[in-house]
């Protein structure tokens, strides 16, 4: 079965992204396909590689990146939400004249249409948020 996942909250303020991570892992283990994980609202903060939690804490951003690499996941950060919150990739850096970028490996920034498409293409859409 094909899943679309929506994550509405940032990685450390709220459990939503941890629940989403564990859900995605379990779905992959059960042989399901993850069509896309879409990060919206403060969920875009899951996609900054500048995140540096203490060593004894879970590294949620790296967990997403590693999972994406291993399973070829499509991790999409909403551009409008990202611009508001300072999540920048190379393209956005250039377009908006920023002095750097902070997108984490495995993530890409794209439009809200990607969420709608996930709703259309997936057999199930599961939303994690506040």
């Amino acid at each position: 079965m094909k899943f679309g996942i929506q994550v509405n909250e940032g990685p450390y303020n709220h459990e939503a992204s941890v629940t989403a991570l564990n859900f995605v892992r379990a779905a992959l283990e059960a042989g399901h396909e993850i069509f896309r994980v879409f990060f919206y609202h403060d969920g875009v903060n899951n996609g900054t590689r500048y995140t540096t939690p203490p060593q004894d804490d879970i590294h949620i951003v790296n967990s997403w990146s590693e999972l994406a690499e291993k399973h070829n996941l499509d991790l999409v950060v909403c551009v409008a939400a990202a611009q508001r919150r300072g999540i920048v990739d190379e393209g956005e850096q250039e377009r908006n004249g920023k002095d750097g970028n902070n997108i984490a490996p495995g993530f890409r920034i794209s439009g809200l249409g990607q969420l709608i498409e996930a709703g259309i293409q997936s057999d199930r859409l599961v939303v994690f948020g506040d």
């Binding site: 899943f3 283990e29 059960a30 399901h32 199930r124 859409l125 599961v126 939303v127 948020g129 506040d130």
Partner: peptide
Amino acid sequence: YKGFVDLTVENDKINAWL
């Protein structure tokens, strides 16, 4: 979590009461 995934498969849609 495996059981959670199974529930999302057994039902047609998921309504998150956020």
